[in-house]
Design a protein around this nucleic acid. Sequence first.
DNA 1: TTGTATTATTGCAATATTACGATAATAAAT
DNA 2: ATTTATTATCGTAATATTGCAATAATACAA
Lengths: 107, 107
Amino acid sequence: MGASRTDIYTEEINEIADMAKVFAHPARVAILQYISTQESCICNDIVDEIGLAQATISQHLKVINDAGLLKGDFQGKSICYCLNIDRFQKFQTLLNSFFNKTKSNCC
Amino acid sequence: MGASRTDIYTEEINEIADMAKVFAHPARVAILQYISTQESCICNDIVDEIGLAQATISQHLKVINDAGLLKGDFQGKSICYCLNIDRFQKFQTLLNSFFNKTKSNCC
DNA sequence: TTGTATTATTGCAATATTACGATAATAAAT
DNA sequence: ATTTATTATCGTAATATTGCAATAATACAA
């Protein structure tokens, strides 16, 4: 007990939950929003911008990255993070598909 | 430490994270989906359908309800849960607005 | 009122998440 | 090779979440 069960749900349902988890922490929402506003896809500035420790930001970036939402390119010593638009679009499409199906069925 | 900080983010960002949290567990996604397929908005059947303990389902229903996504009407001894479509629609609209803004800005 | 069915709450144990300091790893510059 | 700047990882503490059994509360029926 304590751990979420995933074996009793369909793959689609687990996928939606996993997607939502990325956005289920304000730091990650803020990071995504901030990255999108930066012309040159800054990296360590995220730490200054958001106000959490560097280790914490790195941890959140890992979660976002593991979900496939980032492209990271080295630029000098720093890493230039950028949104993976295709993946981001896929998230939006799948979530909308779930929303539309669910609300159209409703009693 | 351990608790999420919310004071350092905008209200919009916290709102999006709170919304996403509802969908960030497969049981809640499954519950919402199931409720939407039921003509007559069944209640305790959710327990049978999903396969978690009654206490656990009730806990998840509370999370969904606290987010304003349910309407519950008494029907006999049982409660007839139904999706609050207006609220559900608002979730979809706000999330889409975040997605659209974010992806259009990207580098 | 008593019994029955349904849902909510409480208490607890297990696991996950969040946050940070310290440290390691990496890449470029000197 | 050494230094410097940047990012990732490790270890740890605090809090949150998940899940369940047991129990309480609620609503109706007899």
